[in-house]
Amino acid sequence: MPVTSPLPFSEAVRRAVRAIPRGEVRSYAQVALYAGKPGAARGVGRELKTLKGVPWWRVIRSDRTLAPAVAHEQARRLAAEGVQVKQQGEHFRVVP
């Protein structure tokens, strides 16, 4: 049986994010785990800034809040998929 090498991190993140079903979310830490790099949540965030054609809005912080820099757009996209997002001032949180 041939030995296969692991995917580059960016491709592993791409696949993990694309696998998130419409109307669901995953944390950056969960995506890192699914990409084979547990503990690389910040790396997932960096990759999402460069990857094109992935549903980046389905990736949220572990505390279920949205990153301020993209919160308005992310909340809009999540709501369009049926995800409940609560806004308190400038802070957004995905409702379980």
Rank of each mutant, 00 (worst) to 15 (best):
M1Y: 05
V3S: 10
T4F: 13
T4P: 00
S10N: 12
S10K: 11
V13G: 05
V13P: 03
R15T: 06
A16F: 06
I20E: 01
I20T: 03
P21D: 02
P21A: 05
R22N: 00
E24H: 11
V25F: 02
R26P: 01
S27L: 09
A29T: 13
A32M: 11
A32H: 09
L33W: 12
Y34V: 11
Y34G: 00
A35Y: 03
G36W: 11
G36D: 07
G36E: 06
P38R: 11
A40Q: 13
R42H: 13
R46A: 10
R46Q: 11
E47Y: 04
K49A: 14
L51E: 01
L51M: 06
K52V: 12
V54W: 05
P55Q: 05
W56I: 00
W56P: 02
W57A: 09
R61N: 15
R61L: 15
R61M: 13
S62H: 11
D63P: 08
D63I: 08
T65R: 14
T65N: 08
T65K: 12
L66G: 08
A67G: 03
A67P: 00
P68Y: 09
P68I: 02
V70L: 10
A71P: 10
A71T: 07
A71W: 09
H72I: 13
H72D: 15
Q74F: 03
Q74S: 12
A75F: 09
A75G: 07
L78A: 06
A80M: 12
V83P: 08
V83I: 12
V83E: 07
V85R: 08
K86M: 11
K86P: 00
G89C: 00
G89A: 01
H91N: 12
R93S: 12
V94K: 10
V94A: 06
V95N: 04
P96E: 15
